[in-house]
Structures are given as structure tokens and as C-alpha cells.
């Protein structure tokens, strides 16, 4: 009883036995899925001798910071300063994420709240495009980006990300489910423009949707090496630079383990921050009923 009260503010249709069973199941599943993070962190603190140990150990026995010291030493020797790679990654992640959230949510807002010619056709195309294998569109995509003259620019990675369909579909489903017609009606009677309705009425309500979108986009763009489109070394991203260091030889295994952890820090921070901001808010939808 005390346990269930401590984890939940409101108590509704829940039995203590059910809570206990749910917790047991959660615990089992979490210990199964958490393995790679535990393993990655543990590896990063292993001395080389322990990294090559057979059978490999899950938990580090003699933790050391040597891997990180080696990594920072190698990073300092880089021909293009590491800060530049980091900045490149940040530019791509920030512009790509913000652009996709704005473009997709605007389109989703209008598709969800208004009826106009072509709206259903457009939405149908978005859903269908989710089901087409991206492997074969890679070459046409390359041709288009080359024709636009965007090879070896940030735009080759950032602009296509703005048109990512997953985000639009996600926003559409959330606006459909969470925004009540009566609310839009009220906004219109108050004389709010479409843009104001979108920005000040609808976007705050569907916050869980775009917080989730940011998690997914951040993760996808953070991992991008820009490999196919960006050739100049000073425009390349952090994952590219770190891969380069790791590929320096077998002895770089320890450094590689440190890289894995360093690359995880930002996506995990964004994940935890955004997830804890997704909270139930009172009186968002269905004001009238």
C-alpha cells in the first residue's frame, strides 16, 4: 500500500496485487533491456587487459580512467580541432530538429483541423511513404541533392531532415486525439488567426508529441556522419571524427569503449529531460464536456 502510494499521486482502479505483478514484470524486462548500457559503461572503465579477457566480463573488476585519458589525448592531436566537429554536429542536430518540428507540426495542424482539397491525398502519401524501403531511394536522393548543388554543405543533411514523415504522422495523430473541435471554435470566435491558434492553442496541448519527436530526431541526427554528402573534413561531424580515432587499430579498443559512452551522454540527457517533461496536464482537451 505504502509502495503504491509513493509512486503515484492519484489512486484509481488499481489493486495492490496487480501493482506488485506489474512491478515484477517491469523489473524483469528492465534488467533484460538495460544490458547494453551497463555493458557499455562498464567497458569504458576497463583496462585493456580486461577488455580482451575471455570469457568477457559484464562488470568491470579494476576500473580505470585510462581510456578516457587516451581518448582526450588523441582528440587533442586531431588535425581539425575536436570542438569544430562537435559544433558541426550541434548545428546539424539543432537546425534539423527545430526545422522538422516546425514544418511537420504546422502541416499536421492544418491537416488535422481543416478540410481542403488534396488534404486526404497528401496524408495518404505520407503514410504510404513510411512503408517504402529507404535503401532504394538513397540513389535518387543523392541525384537530387547533387542537382541542387548541396553536396558538401550542411544543407544536404539538414533540409531533407525537415521533411521527415515520421514526425508529421506522429503530430497528426496527437492533434487528432488531443485537440477538441470546441476549443478551435472558441479560438476562432475570439478572433485568433490560424497561426496564433496553431502556436498558442494547439502546440502547448500536444507537448507530449513534440517532446517525443525531439527525442527521436535528436538521436537520429546526432548519429549522422554525413558520410555520403559531406566530404570536407572541417564540415564533418563528431561521430565521424570519433570513428576515425577508433579505427586507428586494435589497441584503440579501450578508446572505442570510451567513445561509445561519450556519444551516449547527450542523447540520454535529452531523453531523460524530455521524458520527465511529458506530464499529464489538467483541462487541455474536451473543455466543454
Amino acid at each position: 500500500m505504502a509502495l503504491s502510494l509513493s509512486i503515484r499521486e492519484k489512486k484509481l482502479a488499481r489493486s495492490v496485487g496487480g501493482d506488485a505483478a506489474a512491478f515484477f514484470f517491469l523489473f524483469l524486462a528492465a534488467s533484460f533491456t538495460a544490458l547494453p548500457i551497463v555493458f557499455a559503461i562498464s567497458n569504458a572503465f576497463k583496462p585493456l587487459s580486461e577488455l580482451f579477457l575471455f570469457p568477457p566480463t559484464l562488470i568491470v573488476r579494476h576500473p580505470t580512467l585510462a581510456n578516457f585519458q587516451d581518448l582526450f589525448g588523441l582528440m587533442a592531436q586531431s588535425w581539425v580541432p575536436m570542438t569544430r566537429y562537435f559544433l558541426n554536429s550541434l548545428i546539424i542536430v539543432a537546425l534539423g530538429t527545430v526545422g522538422n518540428v516546425l514544418a511537420a507540426s504546422m502541416a499536421a495542424f492544418i491537416l488535422s483541423t481543416r478540410k481542403f482539397i488534396g488534404a486526404n491525398l497528401f496524408m495518404g502519401m505520407v503514410v504510404l511513404s513510411l512503408m517504402f524501403a529507404s535503401e532504394v531511394t538513397a540513389i535518387p536522393n543523392y541525384i537530387i541533392i547533387a542537382k541542387l548543388g548541396w553536396i558538401d554543405t550542411y544543407a544536404s543533411v539538414i533540409v531533407p531532415a525537415w521533411g521527415s514523415t515520421l514526425g508529421l504522422y506522429l503530430m497528426k495523430k496527437f492533434i487528432d486525439a488531443m485537440v477538441d473541435d470546441s476549443l478551435l471554435e472558441a479560438a476562432r470566435i475570439d478572433g485568433a488567426s490560424e497561426f496564433r491558434t496553431y502556436w498558442s492553442v494547439v502546440m502547448p496541448i500536444v507537448r507530449p508529441a513534440w517532446l517525443t519527436m525531439i527525442i527521436l530526431l535528436f538521436q537520429a541526427l546526432w548519429g549522422t556522419t554525413g558520410g555520403n554528402f559531406i566530404y570536407s573534413e572541417q564540415l564533418k561531424t563528431l561521430p565521424h571524427a570519433l570513428n576515425q580515432i577508433v579505427q586507428g587499430g586494435v589497441a584503440r579498443q579501450g578508446v572505442g569503449a570510451a567513445v561509445t559512452v561519450i556519444m551516449m551522454i547527450l542523447p540520454i540527457s535529452v531523453f531523460i529531460y524530455n521524458q520527465s517533461k511529458i506530464i499529464q496536464t489538467m483541462g487541455t482537451s474536451g473543455m466543454a464536456n
Partner: peptide, 12 residues
């Protein structure tokens, strides 16, 4: 949620 999502977020 992070622990469940871990296989998707960790590079290795």
C-alpha cells in the same frame, strides 16, 4: 523508459 529504450539508444 530509458532502461527499456536502452537497446535503441546505445551504440553498441
Amino acid at each position: 523508459a530509458l532502461l527499456f529504450y536502452a537497446p535503441s539508444i546505445s551504440g553498441n
